[in-house]
Design a protein around this nucleic acid. Structure first.
Length: 422
DNA sequence: TCTGGGGTCCTAGGACCC
DNA sequence: TCTGGGGTCCTAGGACCC
């Protein structure tokens, strides 16, 4: 029988910020989304205050003052670095690991129970991550990924578990399932849980007891798999090797509304450049390029406009210059004056490996001269931390860039920001 | 005034083919 | 009255995840 463990970092972003601010060890801390828009992470103290995930920060003004909540802008360089430290430890502990998101991973523990008791093993992993990184994790162990998620959920919810739950025993599984609302099951979102409830399926146990075939015809093959997994039948295997991306999206909401064509144009150029970097990081070429722009869907009293346009290139490319030419044309075609734009983005899709695509018959080789060399030099300089090389169309000091008023230092990734112990 | 960003998978339906 | 059958490919959109 397979054995999966789900290891998940507690309040990850908030915990990362606290690590370097011992003075805030017991303070309520939130981390905000881009543009300091809404709450994306909450420390234990903030959760206890009943503040919900995703709340716009302007609605919390009073509570921030009242409870002395400390706000941080998101510092992805810090979180990504801490994440890789945690994942490296987990990788040493298990033969196979799937890094599922920045703060959680599935481990394959099949066979481990011949050597150690699973609960003991889970506690060892937790202790090691805690000692080496200062990040606390919860561990859920079960015969399927969906049950491992649920075990992890229980590990967090019930302090008596010591944050590690072994859910291999079927009787224990049933007892827990009866206590969990159906909407808390992995793969059951708001829409589906509403529909399930209208059919009298309220708990995870109700869902586990449903007829899989009926679920498939009324809902989907995805939910049918969930039913199987809740019954201990593993349908979802570990995705150890990161699948190559199918698409790359770069989009941001702006620090303030944009009305000038030139400003929006610069933003598009900037996103194009970032998307092209990601594409080269994947070692892929892309053939389809899409640009979109939109006004705020929340604004009640002003005209709305949203549009997007795609194009298929004659030859796949990863050259920033090619992509900039294309997104510029697409942008000009969807731009309309007289709106207050909130967001824009660039999407790349239809990827190819180098040398495996059909060349356009009428353009012997679309490649620009020295493309490969120039792009790799640009990427190297920009990754070195020494400075930035960029394309003129991005503008020199953009007004539209993100609002990040509460950004913490790059403690772990920039020499000048290294914390000093006095 | 102020509401994130980046992904995946699946399905239905239309276009098109013989 | 009555208007084929079976397939492929593509796209848009819905639902989910963190």
């Amino acid at each position: 029988m397979s054995v999966f463990a789900l290891v998940d970092c507690n309040n990850f972003y908030a915990s990362c910020e606290k690590l370097f601010r011992p003075d805030l060890a017991h303070a309520p801390v939130v981390v905000l989304s881009n543009n300091d828009g809404c709450v994306v992470a909450r420390s234990r103290e903030v959760k206890a205050l009943g503040i919900k995930m995703g709340v716009p920060v302007f609605q919390l003004k009073d509570e921030i003052v009242k409870h002395g909540i400390v706000c941080f802008s998101s510092n992805y360089a810090l979180y990504a670095d801490m994440s890789s430290r945690v994942m490296n430890i987990l990788e040493e502990e298990a033969p196979r690991l799937e890094v599922y998101s920045i703060d959680e991973a599935f481990m394959d523990l099949t066979g481990v129970d011949h050597v150690t008791d699973l609960l003991t093993f889970g506690k060892q992993v937790k202790a090691k991550v805690d000692k080496w990184t200062g990040i606390t994790v919860g561990v859920g162990i079960a015969p399927t990924k969906t049950l491992a998620k649920l075990a992890n959920h229980a590990a967090k919810k019930y302090p008596a578990t010591g944050s590690v739950v072994d859910l291999m025993d079927p009787n224990r599984q049933r007892r827990l399932l009866a206590l969990v609302e159906v909407g808390d099951v992995w793969g059951v979102g708001r829409r589906i849980s509403e529909k399930l409830r209208s059919r009298g399926i309220n708990t995870a146990l109700d869902l586990a007891n449903a007829n899989p075939k009926a679920i498939r015809s009324e809902f989907s093959v995805v939910l049918e798999r969930t039913v199987q997994e809740l019954n201990g039948v593993s349908c979802l295997d570990l995705g150890c090797v990161r699948p190559t991306k199918q698409q790359i999206i770069c989009s941001r909401s702006f620090g303030h509304r944009i009305t000038e064509k030139q400003e929006l144009r610069e933003a598009i150029a900037k996103y194009t450049t970032r998307a092209a970097e990601k594409l080269r990081g994947e070692k892929r070429l892309c053939r389809v390029v899409n640009v979109f722009i939109r006004t705020s869907p929340h604004a009640k009293d002003e005209p709305h406009y949203a549009n997007s346009l795609s194009v298929e290139l004659p030859n796949p490319t990863d050259d920033t210059r090619d992509l900039l030419e294309v997104t510029e044309v697409l942008f000009r075609r969807i731009w309309r004056a007289g709106f207050r734009y909130m967001k824009a983005g660039v999407m790349l899709a239809d990827f190819y490996e180098h040398g495996t695509y059909q060349q356009d018959l009428f353009r012997a080789d679309g490649m620009k001269a020295n493309s490969k060399v120039l792009m790799s030099v640009v990427d190297q300089i920009n990754h070195s931390g020494l400075g930035n090389v960029f394309f003129a169309s991005q503008g020199v000091s953009p007004q539209w860039s993100m609002k990040r008023e509460h950004l913490s230092p790059a403690y772990t990734t920039r020499w000048e920001d290294l914390p000093v112990v006095k």
